[in-house]
Simulated scan of single mutants.
Amino acid sequence: MPIITFGVKEEGKEYIWRPAAYILMLNKEKDNIAVIQTADGKYFLPGGGIENNESHEECLIREALEEMGMQIQVGRYIGCAQRYFYSTNEYKYFLSEGHFYQCEIGEQTGNPTEEDHFLRWIEPAKAIESLFHEHQSWAVVKSLHD
């Protein structure tokens, strides 16, 4: 099955492939989804780049602690999608390959270590329209309809 791809690959640009794993987590009432708001006001799903030889699960667990200060239980795999984009923070072109997982809230173990990341709980419809990366919005839609 081909991977769904968002964004446009610009001719003559060199893209850095960045595999990543992301968390889709609904609260107990199932009416709000966890998102991370960065200091510049952008919204992202919790998660991020896979480091070294991490498994998807190891990446998700590490990112949950870094960004939300909580443990999670990794659940079902939702799917994979990718996005071509230019990072205005790093001044580089990336092909982000996101692997998305439904996760359950675990124990709050402390404060997030990433000081410019803030956990927000918002309605899925708002998340879909507000997430910075289109492949993350795609994953929210897919998780709600599977």
Rank of each mutant, 00 (worst) to 15 (best):
H135T: 12
S55K: 09
R18M: 12
G106T: 02
V141E: 15
T109S: 00
Q37T: 01
S143D: 00
G7D: 08
A64N: 00
G41V: 06
A21P: 05
V35M: 06
G98Q: 10
V35D: 03
E10Y: 01
G48N: 07
A81S: 15
D40P: 06
Q136D: 11
R62M: 00
L131H: 09
V140M: 04
F100Q: 02
A64W: 00
N32F: 12
E51M: 15
D146S: 12
D116L: 02
S87H: 11
N52H: 13
M1P: 13
E66P: 12
D40N: 15
E58I: 09
N32M: 08
H133I: 07
W121P: 05
H135P: 06
A64C: 00
E63L: 10
H135G: 07
Y93W: 15
E123P: 14
Y93V: 10
G47P: 12
H145V: 15
F118Q: 05
F85W: 10
K92T: 03
S96F: 05
D40F: 08
E67D: 08
D146R: 11
G79S: 02
P46V: 00
K126S: 15
Q37M: 11
P19I: 06
I50W: 12
S96Q: 06
H56A: 15
F118W: 01
G49P: 07
K42L: 12
Y84N: 00
R18Q: 10
R76W: 04
I61T: 09
K28A: 08
I3F: 07
E58H: 09
N89L: 14
T113C: 08
L65P: 01
K30N: 06
M70P: 03
G69N: 07
S87A: 12
L26Y: 01
G106Y: 03
A125Y: 14
G79R: 01
I4M: 12
S87K: 13
T109M: 03
T109F: 01
E10D: 05
H56F: 14
